[in-house]
Structure formats: structure tokens, C-alpha cells
Write a protein that binds this DNA or RNA. Structure first.
Lengths: 244, 244
DNA sequence: CGGTAGGTTGACTAGGATCAACTTTGGTGG
DNA sequence: CCACCAAAGTTGATCCTAGTCAACCTACCG
């Protein structure tokens, strides 16, 4: 998938894009897309590829993360748990997303692969110097951090003030909006019922019941466990109470 | 409170700290504390003081914010509402906190003063150039953004997975931790019951009932409506289920 | 004094959790 | 190919927490 990072750059000039970055499918959508070649090269120098198996963690809640990463393939969850085991998913990271923080504090959440996942990882400790040398990287991180704040705030409104039905409808709409698919086509649902429940602050039974109810009302169809079809987009939007 | 910004700087040398910044009570705790004098001066040049009356908004949900600010005195809330009026507070900003984003997107939340509030405001549009000229400002914003992400994630766990009692106990503990007060002393409670409910994703009645229950159990005392005393810190910690 | 905003308390309700049984799906090895 | 098994999902009955609705209290202000 990647070319060997030790392969000599064609031409070795200061501004040549690293070969594996040139081959990277998510480069333009990620952090790496908005930075000049110099900065990209610096990033490439300290980054390496890593594969996480399903269920494997990149960052543990309570530990000081030593790695940050940019997702290539797969899906990871950010989640926090209470000591008695109750767990709340805090968000998902999709390809091109950046995961991890900069500070030295123990992470208040864990990062775990939900599917086989491939990412570019970087040692967290190298970031401050990197940002100082290449302010564009800092700027790109800042923009992403504000985007993430925005998403989290929207999700808090959902968790604090909406009904189970609104939450489920809202989640389906978000998945539908993410994959740019023709209306009426099946949308892939990369989460199990349990994972949807964790994300929505509900139980698995409630998620299942609400999905069944929407199916019964002909708002959606459930061709199999890992996809759904929107039959009545207007009704779904109504159920979601305008939480996009 | 501030000196007139048009007053000539004593000496006008490039590195003199602006007079009103020297007099600023929250400078060291805020964004402005971690940046070199050059950057501080640049900030000072575009900033001005603003007072918000109780209930007055700095940023409206749905509008593109034209101002960002650093709090001096007072208390503001960040909150988002659904179209039917349900409202969820997303956080509070205390003196020294930075409010506002950088992007041009319409704000997904509003910023409103809960008390008479004084802040330094800056035109949002000036930030990108400012950050480019003074990367330290960008870095300081980045650190603050990650701190805020952390806070929000902790709050999401609260909203998604904890009981009303745990939420109320957790809030009281946070207020107690904020003001460095001797144990046993009354802690100021700057929110009305309604505002606590908005913040905790509960109703005013539930908040009132839980407070009364804790008072009945001699965990706290409620000398008046705007303060409380922790009588049994261990019991309160227990009730908060280790959500600090 | 009366009015109002904020707060408390009680009775009742409903939405979602819990507990339990059962079904479907998908993978593995004989 | 099928039998078997574990994991995931569904459905039903019941319970309980927090929401709703309503009455009432209290402090403060003109």
C-alpha cells in the first residue's frame, strides 16, 4: 500500500514530495493536504505506518499517549468509561482524521479500532518542535481542533436534550450524509447495535427497538445488519428533529 | 479599569508592554500570558474592551461570529438550542477564558453573559493574519482548544451515562474545586437552578430535588440560593461516581 | 402591598433501562 | 454441504428514573 520509506526520493531535492505521501489516498483530505511540501517532508520523516487489528487500542484512557495518528483506512472510536464500566463513545474517526492530542496530560479517553485500521503514526513528543518549525502544521491542527469542538458541541446537544428516537434518526442521517450516495441506495452502517448504543448514550435494546419501529413505519429498510436504506427522507428528517 | 488605549505608550519602544495589558488582572492566566511582548502588542492594537450586561449575547447561534473575546470579569455560557426551544448549555467561560472560533462557519452555539461581564474583544477576521505573524498566538490557541476538547469529552460522558444525582454532585464538586476555598467554607454557586439544569441536561425540578435530598442527607448545606457548603466531601465524591 | 422571578414540593406519567427468553447471522470444522 | 456454536440482534414484560403538570412558597422590588 505504501512504498518503502527508505527508498531514495527520486531526485532528493528539498521540495520533492515524499513518494509514499504522493501515493497516499487521504493526503489531500487530511492534515497533510494543507501544508507546504517542506512541512510534509518533515512530517514524513518522523511518521510510520501502523495497522491496528479490530479491537486494538492506539491510546488508552488514563495513559499519556505517546503516539498521534492520521487515519488511512478503517474506523476508530474515541470513548471514555467510568470506573464501574459504563462507557460513552465520544466520537468516531474516519480516514483522513487526526487522532490524539499534543499535551502531556493523561488522555481522558481511549482510542480503539472498530475495524482493521491503517494509519500513519507520529511520536507525540516530536510535535511541538515540528509545529515551531512549520507553523502551517500548527494552523492545520488548530482548524481541525475547532471543527472537532463544533462536532462535540452538536453531539452534546443530542445527548443532553433529545429522545432515543431523535438520536437514532440523527445518527442514520449522519451516516447517509457522509457517504455521498444516491438517494434510495443502501447506506453502509459500520457499527454494531452495541456500538450505536454506546455512541448515542442508549442501550442496545432501545436502539434495536427504534430501528425496528422506523422499519415498521416504512421510514427505512434494513436489508441486512450492516446497512440501511432511507425510504422516506422527509420523515427521517422529521424524526431527527433537525439535528443534522 | 483599563487605561485609555489611545494614550501614548511610555517610551513607544517595540518591546514595551502596552499599559492596559500591564494592568490586566487575567493576563498571565489567559492566552496573553504565554506569548512574547511583540505578539501581545499586536493583540493589544486590535483589541478593545467590551461590557456585556446580564443576558446580553456576544455570539448568536447560527450567526457568523465577528468577535472573539478574552474574559476579564463575569461569567458567560455557551449554549445550543433546538428549534423547538430545548436548550443545552455546552459549557461556561470564566475569567481568562477565550471564547469564539476562527473559522467563518456560522456558530453552532451562542455565547451569552450570565452576569455583568467585561471582556477584551478582537475582530475574528484579524486572527488569521495575526497568527501567521505571531505563531505563538496560534500555539496558545491550539493548547486551549485541546483543553476545551478534553473538558467537553468529560462532560459528554456525564450527559450520556450518569444519573441526575451523579450530575448534580459532579457539578458541585467542580465549583468547589474551582474556587480554592478552605474545606467547610461556603462555595459560591454562580448559577440559578434553571441554569444548572440547562448545563446538566436535566429539568429544574430534578436539580432542586437532588439538592434537597443531599441537604437532607447532610452531605451539603444550602445557606442561601447562591452558595453551598460541603459537609461530607467523601459522601459527595461517592455520589459523583468519581466524575471529577 | 402586590407583583414577579426563582425555588420547592407533590402527584402522576412516560420513556428508556433492565431482565430474560428467543431468533438470526456468520463462521468453523467435520 | 451441513451441523454446530458463538456472537449479535430482537422482542416482551416489568420497573424505575426523571419529566410533566400544578400548586405553593419565598425573597426581592417597585
Amino acid at each position: 500500500m505504501y512504498m518503502d520509506r527508505h527508498q531514495p526520493d527520486l531526485g532528493a531535492a528539498a521540495w520533492t514530495m515524499p513518494a509514499r505521501c504522493a501515493a497516499c489516498g487521504v493526503r489531500m483530505a487530511s492534515l497533510c493536504g494543507g501544508i507546504p511540501a517542506r512541512a510534509l517532508e518533515a512530517l514524513n520523516r518522523i511518521g510510520r505506518k501502523r495497522v491496528l487489528r479490530r479491537g486494538e487500542a492506539l491510546i488508552w484512557q488514563g495513559d499519556v499517549a505517546e503516539q498521534v495518528g492520521i487515519l488511512h483506512h478503517g474506523l476508530v472510536k474515541l470513548s471514555a468509561a467510568l470506573e464501574d464500566g459504563r462507557e460513552q463513545m465520544l466520537g468516531l474517526a474516519f480516514p483522513a482524521d487526526f487522532v490524539g492530542g499534543i499535551g502531556e496530560r493523561p488522555s481522558s479517553y481511549g482510542v480503539t479500532a472498530l475495524t482493521e485500521t491503517e494509519l500513519c503514526i507520529f511520536p507525540r513528543g516530536a510535535l511541538p518542535a515540528l509545529i515551531e518549525a512549520h507553523p502551517e502544521i500548527g494552523h492545520a491542527l488548530l482548524m481541525r481542533a475547532y471543527d472537532e469542538l463544533d462536532q462535540l458541541r452538536r453531539w452534546m446537544l443530542l445527548l443532553g436534550r433529545t429522545s432515543a428516537e431523535e438520536r437514532v434518526a440523527s445518527l442514520l442521517r449522519q451516516f447517509a450524509a457522509r457517504g455521498t450516495c444516491p438517494p434510495g441506495a443502501p447506506v453502509s452502517l459500520p457499527l454494531t447495535r452495541q456500538q450505536m448504543a454506546e455512541l448515542l448514550g442508549l442501550t442496545i435494546e432501545t436502539v434495536s427497538r427504534k430501528l425496528t419501529a422506523m422499519k415498521r413505519e416504512r421510514v427505512i429498510a434494513l436489508p441486512d445488519l450492516r446497512s440501511f436504506v432511507i425510504l422516506d427522507a422527509a420523515a427521517l428528517a422529521m424524526l431527527a428533529a433537525d439535528t443534522p
